[in-house]
């Protein structure tokens, strides 16, 4: 029997549904998305392109821009890695062990999501500046954190801290006790059980958290500028360069750096996601 489809697929791209309101809700979200996000971002690309290839290249290859990009991306990756290690550890401790104040600490992990970045920034500066709470203790030892790239790293660790914890926690919590019990009954040592039963499902989730922490850290501004010292070529981050260009009314230059940042971070996030996909397949996830 042949099936004619007259009424049903009224438009090819949308399934007809009895639930109303598609037109108006889709209209609102697309309009808002275009006005608030997409058109402004298009203006950014347009402005950057208006600079012309020669100027773009000159800017992109200038030592100061390169230094800032290297610092922003390098510190973000390093901070995300620190958060990967400690995030998995903290998630493990919060899921598996009982200790006083656990619920309170669990809630506190989200503080970096809730605390305004400027507040974090001045607090970190007050801690790690050479005359700060910890900085003054380290200064006699010749260790400087505030106003150096290490300060940038501290700020980026702070703002990225919750991501890995929050992606790994549910995976650990939902893991079936039977899996570990089966491994133990089959004679595996505790470490072998951890390695072969717990790590495979946790790793992809931890990677997801890593990517999120990295994406957040790359563009971070508020918490960094107070503690970085902002020395060109040393502790100056890429978003700050954009602000400086804007203050000099060099719109095109600011736009070029902005587009460079976006393109670089999308390439890195894409690569990390591909790696994570490969990891999932390797570890037998669907």
């Amino acid at each position: 029997m042949s099936i004619a489809s007259p009424a049903n697929h009224g438009s090819a791209w949308r399934e007809r549904s009895i639930v109303p309101g598609f037109g108006i809700s889709f209209g609102i979200i697309v309009t808002a998305l275009s006005l608030i996000v997409l058109i402004p971002l298009a203006a950014l690309v347009l402005k950057a392109a208006s600079a012309g290839p020669a100027d773009i290249w000159a800017l992109a290859s200038s030592p100061r821009v390169l230094g800032a990009l290297r610092l922003s991306f390098g510190a973000a990756l390093l901070a995300a890695f620190v958060n990967l290690v400690f995030g998995v550890l903290i998630a493990w401790v919060l899921v598996r062990y009982e200790f006083p104040g656990k619920r309170f600490i669990d809630a506190a992990v989200d503080l970096p999501f809730a605390l305004p970045t400027a507040v974090a920034g001045i607090a970190l500066a007050a801690i790690y500046a050479p005359n700060g709470w910890i900085g003054s203790l380290l200064a006699p030892l010749g260790i400087k954190i505030g106003y150096t790239p290490a300060g940038v790293l501290m700020a980026l660790i702070f703002i990225g801290l919750p991501f890995v914890v929050r992606t790994v926690q549910p995976v650990l919590a939902e893991m079936e006790a039977e899996l570990e019990e089966a491994a133990a009954l089959l004679g595996a040592s505790r470490w072998r059980t951890v390695w072969s039963v717990i790590v495979p499902p946790v790793l992809p989730a931890a990677m997801t958290g890593f990517v999120l922490a990295f994406a957040r850290a790359v563009g971070e501004y508020g918490s960094v500028i107070f503690i970085a010292g902002n020395v060109p070529m040393v502790s100056e981050i890429a978003p700050l360069l954009i602000v400086i260009r804007l203050e000099q009314f060099d719109y095109a230059g600011a736009a070029v750096i902005g587009v460079l940042m976006l393109v670089l971070s999308f390439i890195i996030i894409l690569a990390l996601n591909l790696f994570q996909g490969a990891l999932r397949r390797r570890l037998g996830h669907v």
Partner: peptide, 8 residues
């Protein structure tokens, strides 16, 4: 019920 639409 009218919750879905006929193709024919």
């Amino acid at each position: 019920a009218g919750l879905d639409f006929l193709d024919g």
